[in-house]
């Protein structure tokens, strides 16, 4: 919470809106390609222009992810990443003084294995602001969503093209922080849907909620980001960033001195792209 009683997520979206622009939400996988490099990337994201950070929690079986994020998770797991170490990354990030909101994104089983209650206590204490858990639809809210809200952690839900007007209220009911609109049916990293359709969908969601709506899936370039930014409160970029990590690695799959800057340079381009679009505050 900030002094105004808003969560870090709320105040960050409000601050971006006050600047008349969309927020840049960046996804990177915790522990990719290794703990130290991933920590360096995380700590460099705020200065590069990330407004909100989604930190991917690696899982062996990422059913909703495309190849880039699958590979990122495999690299991280191979390097020994665990949920405990992911929380340690966030703790160090907060100790370094960063106040950029952090949302952990992944699948339920690592959290379930950690223990829901203990996880929420630790996440709250360390400074995690929100959770996106891909395989927990509203039908399973008692599992984690409701306990998270009680613990003061936002639970951010995905809305998709298959989420019709009848279902939207259910999806939005216990959502907090922001709504993540997945711009297509498919796995992460696919091709982007038409920008007009995205704008229409955002408008549709906004008829049901006052929460900011961030749009993701398929955003790869500054031009994509700018096009999405016109109709949304936030632009989510993930696969393109973890692909930057992959392409920076040496032949043995190890980080190089270019790995961190490969990510931050794209983040800076995307941040600039978003700023080319001015929105009414």
């Amino acid at each position: 919470m900030t002094e105004t009683g808003q969560t870090r997520i709320q105040s960050r979206f409000a601050a971006c809106a006050a600047q008349g622009r969309a927020a840049l939400v960046t996804f990177v996988t915790a522990g990719d390609p290794d703990f130290e490099t991933a920590s360096a990337i995380l700590n460099a994201l705020p200065e590069a222009g990330a407004d909100v950070i989604e930190l991917g929690v690696p899982f062996t079986d990422p059913m909703a992810d495309g190849v880039p994020i699958q590979l990122a998770g495999q690299r991280a797991l191979k390097a020994g990443q665990t949920l405990k170490r992911t929380l340690a990354m966030v703790e160090a990030f907060r100790k370094a003084g960063h106040d950029t909101p952090i949302v952990l994104m992944g699948y339920y089983n690592p959290i379930w294995a950690y223990g829901v209650e203990r996880f929420l206590q630790d996440a709250r204490r360390i400074g995690v602001d929100g959770l996106i858990v891909v395989d927990l639809p509203p039908e399973e809210d008692v599992e984690l969503c409701l306990p998270a809200l009680e613990a003061g952690i936002s639970f951010i839900r995905l809305a998709t093209p298959t989420t019709d007007d009848k279902r939207l209220p259910k999806v939005l009911s216990n959502t907090s922080g922001f709504v993540y609109y997945v711009s297509m049916t498919g796995v992460t990293g696919g091709a982007i849907a038409s920008y007009d359709a995205v704008g229409d969908a955002v408008a549709r969601i906004k008829r049901h909620t006052d929460l900011p709506v961030a749009v993701g899936f398929g955003v790869k370039t500054a031009a994509d980001a700018a096009a999405i930014a016109k109709g949304a409160d936030g632009v989510v970029v993930g696969s393109a960033l973890v692909e930057r990590v992959r392409l920076s690695l040496d032949a043995d799959g190890k980080a190089t001195d270019k790995t961190v800057s490969a990510v931050t340079s794209l983040v800076a381009e995307l941040a600039a792209g978003i700023r080319t679009v001015s929105k009414a505050a």
Binding site: M63, A64, Y108, V134, D135, L136, P137, P138, E139, E140, R157, L158, A159, T160, P161, T162, T163, D164, R167, V171, V182, T185, G186
Partner: peptide
């Protein structure tokens, strides 16, 4: 009605699949 056998079962899927 929630697809549970005791604590087991359920519907742990992405939102995209839920309506289907």
């Amino acid at each position: 009605e929630n697809g549970r056998f005791g604590m087991f079962g359920g519907r742990f899927v992405a939102e995209t699949l839920m309506p289907l």
